[in-house]
Design a protein around this nucleic acid. Sequence first.
DNA 1: GGCCAGGACACCA
DNA 2: TGGTGTCATGGC
Length: 212
Amino acid sequence: MSQPTLLKIYQSLLSAFGPQHWWPANTAEEVIFGAILAQNTTWENAKRAIAALKNTENLSFKKIPTINLEELADLIKSARFLNQKAKALKAVADYLGNTYNFDIEKMKKKPLGKLREELLNLYRIGPETADSILLYALEKPIFVIDAYTKRMFSQHGFMKSDDSYEAYQKFFMDNLPHNVQVYNEFHALIVHTGYLYCKPKPLCEECPLSHF
DNA sequence: GGCCAGGACACCA
DNA sequence: TGGTGTCATGGC
């Protein structure tokens, strides 16, 4: 794999599908809510949970500590794994409050590596969620690997299906310019393409990646 | 009724 | 370290 090839895949998906305008949220804070609520569920179900928080004026990490756990879990139940995700939102709220006084702009001033370490120490923030927050909420140059990325790029022979998250991430970051906008758009395009051609039965031969 | 969705984690050997 | 089970909604 050469850098021009991966860049060509990106350009090809971009011209085929256009800009995806990710992350679908109004504020950085909403991106963080969404990154947790969308874990291993459909975006539609995550959106319902976000709407429920918004309708009750609880879509703010300042408000999360004031809601009891059961009530919070009930509000976000459409996003699946309600109890775990409710605890995760509580943990992030504590972290944001204690470390940054809920000021995302203050958070952005910290270096990428330090922020990633802090996020990974939080309950139910794994590599994909941490990187989604870093890229889409904090505008840090790190590539997000998700289930679609693994499926598509292993099915088309660029990687192995059992390669680690880190291996996939290195593959993308070694072969693309370190650019927030490119990482943002490429990951969004991969999810879009994966949704069209990779689930549940793969339509690999029709997938744009089959041309590379 | 069964399977799957934009993961993470506990537990066990 | 890796393999497997758990979490516990909603749509198709």
